[in-house]
Amino acid sequence: MDEEARSATEPKRTVDVASLKALAHPLRIEILDTISRLGPQTSGTLAEILGESTGSTSYHLRQLARHDFLREVEGRGSGRERWWDRPKGSLQVVTRELADDPATAEAAHLVSREFEHRRAAALADFMEHGWLSEPAEWSDAAMASTSHARLTASELAMVSAKLEDFASSLIAQFKGRPTPEGARPVQIHINAFPLAPQRQEGPRRHQEKP
């Protein structure tokens, strides 16, 4: 499971056992996801956003930094105010090996579940509230699209890889630039997965089009 899509020139880090176990805490995932969405934060700004104490956010920030999930922003902040950001590149936070290993399965499932809950919640919130309440320029620019096909595992792997590469190449042009006026955090989802067998076929009350 990739926590963030990568560009062709960015490094990709696969999380090891110790780092996975360190990440397996709901608040640490929330902190990492918040910084991924909103950019650099301090313990104070995170405490305000997440409704936590600064002592708690400060502790978890240090733990995330210890395992290289975050880095201190050089030249920003002073005294006790320290700014934290994501290192460049993407994270593969859950691998098949970690998910299948009894020693790491629980941590892998927690991390995967928390990231997916937050991703699904963001999309559900936009579909329920944002679609009609956002200014037209933003709602018209958004997209929620579903496609169906019957593929082999190798075909699905090819589609997933090409979708990821294409999305990464598009997003790469906007990274590392000064943030323009009017820019907002956005989230881009590309979902490609086989449906669970029990949900693939149901009672055929009407004929579905492919």
Score class of each variant (00 low, 15 high):
G55H: 01
R71L: 13
H67P: 02
P87S: 05
V73K: 10
R71H: 12
Y59A: 08
D85K: 04
F69L: 13
E81Y: 08
T57E: 00
R62T: 00
R66C: 03
P87I: 06
W83R: 00
R86E: 05
D85C: 06
R86I: 05
W83E: 08
S56M: 05
R66H: 12
F69V: 14
R66L: 08
G79F: 07
Q63K: 14
L64Y: 04
G55E: 05
D85T: 15
E74N: 13
Y59R: 09
S56F: 00
G77F: 06
P87V: 08
G79K: 07
P87K: 02
H67K: 08
W84D: 06
G55K: 05
E72T: 12
D68K: 13
L61M: 12
R76L: 14
E72A: 15
R80Y: 05
R82S: 01
E72L: 12
H60C: 01
W83S: 03
K88W: 00
V73P: 09
R62A: 07
A65H: 07
S78D: 14
L64M: 04
L61Y: 01
G75A: 14
L70C: 08
Q63E: 13
F69Y: 14
H67F: 15
T57Q: 03
Y59D: 01
L64T: 02
R80P: 00
R76I: 10
L70I: 06
D68E: 14
S58H: 09
A65Q: 11
T54W: 07
G55R: 11
D85E: 12
W83L: 06
G75I: 14
S58V: 01
Y59M: 04
R71C: 11
P87H: 06
G75V: 15
L70V: 15
E81N: 15
E81M: 11
L70R: 05
Q63D: 07
S58I: 01
F69W: 13
G55P: 02
W83A: 02
V73R: 12
V73L: 13
T57F: 09
R66A: 10
G79E: 12
E74S: 15
R80E: 07
E81R: 11
W84M: 07
G79Y: 08
L61V: 02
H60A: 01
G75N: 08
D85R: 09
G79W: 09
R82V: 15
T54R: 15
G55S: 05
R82P: 00
G55W: 02
L61T: 04
R86G: 02
F69M: 11
R71V: 13
G55Q: 09
Q63N: 12
G79M: 11
E72W: 10
W84T: 06
A65W: 04
G79C: 09
Q63Y: 03
A65G: 14
G75Q: 09
L61P: 02
E74A: 15
H67V: 06
S56I: 11
